[in-house]
Write a protein that binds this DNA or RNA. Sequence first.
DNA 1: AATGAATGAGCCTTCATTCAT
DNA 2: GATGAATGAAGGCTCATTCAT
Lengths: 210, 210, 210, 210
Amino acid sequence: MTTASATTRVRLLEAAGEIFASEGFDGATVRSICARADANVAAVHYHFGDKESLYREVVDYAFAQLHERFPRPALPPAGGLEHQLRSHVEALLARLFKASASWHGRLLAREMANPGPALPQVAERYMRPQVEALEELLGAVRPDLDLPARRLHALSLIAQCVFFRHARPVLDVLYGPSAFGADELPRLSAHIVETFLTGLAIAPARLESP
Amino acid sequence: MTTASATTRVRLLEAAGEIFASEGFDGATVRSICARADANVAAVHYHFGDKESLYREVVDYAFAQLHERFPRPALPPAGGLEHQLRSHVEALLARLFKASASWHGRLLAREMANPGPALPQVAERYMRPQVEALEELLGAVRPDLDLPARRLHALSLIAQCVFFRHARPVLDVLYGPSAFGADELPRLSAHIVETFLTGLAIAPARLESP
Amino acid sequence: MTTASATTRVRLLEAAGEIFASEGFDGATVRSICARADANVAAVHYHFGDKESLYREVVDYAFAQLHERFPRPALPPAGGLEHQLRSHVEALLARLFKASASWHGRLLAREMANPGPALPQVAERYMRPQVEALEELLGAVRPDLDLPARRLHALSLIAQCVFFRHARPVLDVLYGPSAFGADELPRLSAHIVETFLTGLAIAPARLESP
Amino acid sequence: MTTASATTRVRLLEAAGEIFASEGFDGATVRSICARADANVAAVHYHFGDKESLYREVVDYAFAQLHERFPRPALPPAGGLEHQLRSHVEALLARLFKASASWHGRLLAREMANPGPALPQVAERYMRPQVEALEELLGAVRPDLDLPARRLHALSLIAQCVFFRHARPVLDVLYGPSAFGADELPRLSAHIVETFLTGLAIAPARLESP
DNA sequence: AATGAATGAGCCTTCATTCAT
DNA sequence: GATGAATGAAGGCTCATTCAT
């Protein structure tokens, strides 16, 4: 694989990523991808075999890029478990919103919402690490909870983060684009974390929106 | 409108509903819809104008069917606000799971996850009533919360219910199809409600999975 | 044939006339004709059999209406043959332009330019009377010319009148819409008649555009 | 552009030319064109984009072929202006008849009679040069005429040539196919030229058909 | 390693027509 | 006498794919 071919390959992956992310698998056309990559129509067949293989490779590529660009923050060991949990949740939400600024995040979000050929990859490489990291943290905070209970809590937490990100089209229609946009991220983050910790009986109940 | 014509129209709506739900708007073809409805290709144009109009009418039809088959349960006025809230959440989750057994629910879920031509309909007729009902209930339970806070709580609640339903493809991959299936619904329901109420400082914290 | 059916028939003929005249045979659709006539889609089949039969009947109808609305002017016997010829030519040109204000004239013009199923009718009922009337007049003016020569002259005359009417789209592109429009009709008329008469050695040559 | 591809493109142009000429723009189908060109249905889209672009390119192609096959005759400078005018007219008429033996001429004629997407091309590239050449010649023969007068005479002349060619379907119906066919071309030519010159007061009036 | 040309299947839509009432 | 529903054929166009170079 010479440098020249690798370059074309990467250009195709980048172009396909952006188009798949914005148009979906069906909506994207091989021609538009090749045009954006400044490559021949036959280049996709040549480098990837067919459209679906290209898609799978794009998803792989998206992971690599995503982990490189948005590395999971190294939690400071200090600060206590509660603080670590809080940081983790905030980081999760922040990543979810920021990542969608690039096509990498948008593509994975689309794949998760609309199961396609790359679903297993997304589940294993995107979801499972998230859940397991939270499970572990919860285990340290509340050692009395067994694994199924911890898993439920972890998923509930992810559920809220994911929802406020994925349901934005609907929320925009209902409450306008600025109600739950990226600017409101701190407020969302605080709401989710506080309620969660209270629900776990970690943090004391307190009146919100003081 | 004779009985025969009404039948063809309804056959088309039913067929289109199932195919749109499983294939999506782009994936569905007018031909396959007509074939399933045992009607001519031109029938869609005759009855609905074009594919997109058909889609919008199918969404409308899905609402009508859904409300008819899964009417919102009349809450018993007795039992206290906390009990009402609990019932409401359980009903929401139950409806979400049961409705998705038919294409009606799957279609709305797909439209919500992947915004299409009928997004405004779904937002206004499906989401908003849910949120407002919960907002109202929360207002009775916790009158100290202002509207934005109540709205956040309502959305968080919906988020979890929606997530356990919509993310099932991913969860199936990760934990097997029986882990968070319909059989586990009571467990899910209890988890969500209890944590929620605790988080709201309504119910006392208690150890789960005893 | 009751009054009611006759009315529908006539409404169909009028509607079809206008649409055929502006859209052509292929461009016109049975549906649009029936819509304009405020009749059912099947009405064409019911009253005329099929689209082509309707077209032929519309052409017939156009003749009847045209002769009724634009009767050939009764030439004053007085004034001398030259004057009669001059009047005849002016009337021919005027009719050609004025008739095209209604769909009747436009339809016949279209049929003549673009031979269709009704060509024989147009030839026999529209063209032949024109030619023969001119042949007769020329025979009176120039008895020395035999029939083939008179026919050529008659056709040359008609040629010019027809051209300035039918080639208007092209002339509009070349010289603007006002150069050879209806307002310029007197100038056109004078030009054609004078040159023609001079060419026949009837009128003396003279300098134009004095 | 390999030889093979050029061949397919040209085969499409030729096939489209013949079918457009005989069926018109609406009447022609992409499928029939491709079938005649022995090419795939998608070939039209690949080479020309869509049906209308193909049509425009066919018109361009028709001009090129027409100028190549029927070049405007180089007039002998000798012989006097009257002779030049006479030659020019004869050549115009001859070209009009001969060109229409192939589809190239028929296509342009159809576009002129029935304005379509290529009308501006036809007007500018086909009509205007004809008119201007005649205007120039007339200016030399009759310097006393101003431009509007010369233009009218030029158009009258063209009108007759065009008429005897375009109205042939009607003339065939009225007087049989041999009356004004290609064999009668010399007679037509003589008639038009003589009458025209007499009408311009250039040639002396004389008795025709002696 | 890479490409421009060409393909065949399929899509949505439109139309004139016919059927049952 | 007249209609709304339904039909089958076809049309233009798009797409992922493959072939020959």
